[in-house]
Design a protein around this nucleic acid. Structure first.
Length: 770
DNA sequence: ATCCGTGAGCTTTTT
DNA sequence: GCTCACGGAT
């Protein structure tokens, strides 16, 4: 398509000039360069979203119809935000036609349209993590593989997911398997895939994989979408995985109007298969690409930017870049060392109250960022105590609650009867006297006849093993579902759902219970129905199947109203893309942030450090780092050192505060690291670095002063090695197969002659070498 | 089939 | 500290 960049060609009645208003020269270029491949390297706070939205507005102003624009993001929220901003500048009907959404939701839409090309029906179910795990467990059990692996189903699931994200098939995995463990995974993986197909279901990873399969095997379909998506934009490109990368590449292959935006310094999803190479190699893929660098930060103070820069410099794998700002110098970062997680939270909340009284800030200007969701509890309690309004962003999603999933399960069954996951979920909810034994008989029958559970439910009369009570129960259940499957064709959607859910007996069950909890659950069920009603109003063309497909991809993040005047609590991952005048980064302790015990791989530490960088660059004016001497973990008090990341920040940007009224600190600690108090820490910041230990490979650890942290406990624990033969009081003789963790967290996987594999904390297990 | 007590294992981070 | 699976009792 040849665009003439003149106003007279517009079919929309907006002026082009306002689109460029207030943009710096690089941003201007980013908006204007709409033909051909473009890479925008956008530093934190450099106006990336502005460029993206103005760019789309510019496309539309030049006569590109909204439906020819594909804008891929990583969260629904980012997509919504983008559409919202665009609809403010351009004709709303055009704006609403833009294909803006997450990779997963856009690809789900495509797959729905083209389902028959890949052997699915268009009412396929989408399995979230819980469904997927449940299916996996059943698969392992049904194939007689339980007890054959030391790995938990969750571990297996994440390994399968990892393989899928890397586009490794079960066959390839089996071929590359290094040990029986890998072989086991490959095996389960193959079976799991079969089960998904039988269920006419896809997990999250399949949404990406199946799209690629579809585009690869159907050139006509590929061309169709290449012609629809004439202009492609990808946000957070540094976080794309192989599947996402390939899909976009295929779609962009014809016209090459692809614009990707990203910042390698903010790549934090490697664990989910993201490959930073995708952004680093963009120029190789598209040699003619225009490269645009947005390096002026409009968000933060000079001090914050410099501090962030001093942190990221510690990473070896980094594109050198200069982020700069015209903003004022700003205050130093306050570092607070607390006794435990409770005093950490109390200090934070007190500080928030103090700042609010002193000047212009209100609750919404504050964010507390932590590494793990579990850390939110102490802050919640502290906020509640002083009546400070707060909102936890993220965390467990509404759509993952039991009663909500039950309702959705019933609905899924209506449109996709092959979905045995949904079937088994709801068949005995409310209790219908259908336990494991009865269902096992039906399952056997279904396998024997090579048909779905649902089909077999219809034929219970011929299954001799079943008690007549169970038979009647099943007939009642199946008739209910069939009745509403038929009514679905004629009845109004909302009415249908209301009476269906009523007749399932779910609501009655909770009504009879009549507890606070059950009343909550009823109101949640009501909320699902309201939600569905909203969807039906907003999408009159769509049916129940589309609702269900989209709902699975919605997270709590997208649902909550974040515009209220509340302090926001969230993980560092969730905070990406957001900004706040005052930011607290909590739990800066070894083993928590960076997470994962000490001896992880340098790449992992680099990713954690990028996460720290993301956290720092969320702050506009004021920034705090807090860490605790001890903290409850797994119900036990754990002592830990301050995070090495604190030492990554140039000292001149920090201002230290110690907890006042501190009770006597344990100065002869039981555990390895609590001697590492605050005053010690400051001293060490001033010391010159100790020399490198020549045989120690990880540079990150050379910089740490671990020396006096190893107590006797750690020493005692450190003598064990892989391969050692040991005895245990209860389990007898065994051999150490694997050692993980460091210091007091050091754990050993021991294979005992009597009881098989056990994972033991070396500190407590009292093993003896033989 | 359901209720309850016990114990093991657990946590990253998200679509 | 919390959840989930398992086993025994009802």
């Amino acid at each position: 398509m040849n665009l003439k960049l003149v106003k007279t060609e517009n079919d929309s009645n907006i002026d082009i000039d306002p689109i460029f208003k207030g943009l710096n020269p690089e941003q201007h270029k980013g908006v204007k360069t709409i033909e051909g491949p473009v890479l925008i390297v956008a530093g934190a706070g450099s106006g990336k979203t502005k460029v993206l939205t103005q760019r789309i507005a510019f496309l539309i102003a030049n006569g590109v119809p909204g439906y020819n624009i594909l804008a891929l993001t990583f969260t629904n929220k980012a997509a919504k935000e983008m559409s919202h901003r665009i609809s403010k500048i351009v004709n709303e009907s055009q704006a609403s036609r833009i294909w803006a959404g997450t990779f997963h939701s856009i690809f789900a839409r495509i797959l729905r349209r083209e389902a028959e090309h890949i052997g699915y029906t268009n009412s396929f179910s989408i399995y979230d993590q819980d469904d997927s795990l449940s299916l996996l467990k059943k698969t392992i059990e049904n194939r007689g593989l339980d007890g054959q692996s030391s790995q938990t189903p969750n571990q297996i699931r994440s390994k399968i997911s990892w393989a899928k994200n890397k586009m490794i098939t079960p066959q390839q995995l089996a071929k590359e398997a290094k040990d029986t463990k890998d072989n086991f995974i490959a095996n389960v993986y193959a079976y799991y895939e079969e089960e998904l197909r039988k269920n006419n279901a896809m997990d999250f990873d399949d949404l990406l994989l199946n799209t690629i399969t579809l585009l690869k095997n159907n050139p006509d379909v590929l061309e169709k979408y290449q012609d629809i998506f004439k202009y492609i934009l990808v946000d957070e490109y540094q976080d794309t995985n192989k599947a996402q990368y390939l899909a976009t590449k295929m779609l962009a292959n014809k016209l090459e109007n692809i614009c990707v935006v990203g910042d390698d310094a903010q790549s934090i999803y490697k664990w989910r298969g993201a490959d930073i190479k995708n952004i680093l190699d963009f120029q190789k893929d598209y040699p003619t690409a225009t490269i645009i660098r947005l390096e002026q930060n409009y968000r933060s103070t000079k001090l914050i930017i410099n501090a962030a820069d001093s942190v990221i410099k510690n990473n070896r794998h980094q594109i050198p870049k200069t982020l700069w700002t015209d903003n004022p110098e700003g205050d130093k970062i306050i570092v607070y060392n607390s006794i435990d997680e409770k005093t950490e939270a109390e200090y934070t909340i007190k500080e928030i109250k103090k700042i609010m009284e002193e000047n212009r800030f209100s609750p919404k200007d504050f964010a507390i960022l932590y590494r793990t969701n579990a850390q939110s509890l102490a802050y919640e309690n502290a906020c509640r105590r002083v009546n400070l309004p707060y909102l936890i962003v993220g965390g467990i999603s509404f759509y993952r609650r039991k009663e909500v999933k039950d309702v959705l399960g019933y609905l899924r069954l209506l449109i996709n009867p092959d979905d045995s996951e949904a079937l088994l979920r709801v068949v005995n909810e409310p209790p219908r006297g259908l336990g494991a034994t009865s269902l096992k008989h039906i399952k056997n029958f279904a396998d024997f006849k090579h048909q779905s559970m649902f089909e077999s439910f219809k034929e219970v009369d011929v299954i001799d093993e079943l008690q007549s009570r169970a038979k009647n129960s099943i007939k009642g259940f199946i008739n209910l579902v069939i009745k509403f499957q038929e009514l679905k064709e004629t009845m109004d959607l909302l009415e249908l759902v209301k009476s269906y859910i009523q007749e399932t007996g779910l609501i009655d069950m909770y009504r009879e219970l009549d507890t606070d909890d059950s009343r909550d659950r009823i109101s949640n069920i009501d909320q699902v129905i309201n939600d569905l009603s909203d969807f039906a109003t907003n999408n009159p063309e769509s049916g129940l199947d589309e609702y269900l497909q989209q709902i699975t991809l919605i997270t709590d993040l997208d649902e909550k109203d974040t515009s209220q005047n509340q302090v926001k609590l969230m993980t560092l991952h969730t905070a990406k893309g957001l900004e706040f005048p005052v930011v607290f980064i909590a739990g800066l302790e070894e083993g928590l942030f960076p997470l994962g015990g000490s001896p992880n791989f340098p790449e992992d530490t680099e990713e954690e450090r990028r996460l720290f960088y993301v956290g720092i660059t969320r702050a506009m004016e004021k920034l705090y780092f807090t860490y605790a001497d001890k903290r409850m973990k797994f119900g036990q008090t754990q002592y830990q050192k301050p995070s090495k990341f604190l030492q990554n920040v140039d000292k001149k940007y920090l201002s230290f505060t110690e907890h006042l009224n501190s009770p006597i600190k344990p100065n002869a600690p039981t555990y390895g690291s609590s001697s590492y108090g605050n005053s010690n820490y400051i001293k060490q910041q001033n010391q010159t670095k100790t020399g490198r230990t020549p045989n120690f490979r990880r540079p990150d650890f050379d910089d740490m002063q671990f020396k006096d942290d190893y107590s006797q406990v750690s020493k005692a624990v450190a003598v064990f090695r892989t391969g050692d033969r040991v005895t245990h009081k209860a389990f007898g003789v065994g051999r150490i197969e694997l050692i993980t963790g460091e210091g007091k967290n050091r754990q050993a996987m021991v294979n005992f002659n009597s009881v098989g594999r056990k994972k033991l904390m070396l500190e407590f297990a009292k093993l003896e070498k033989i």
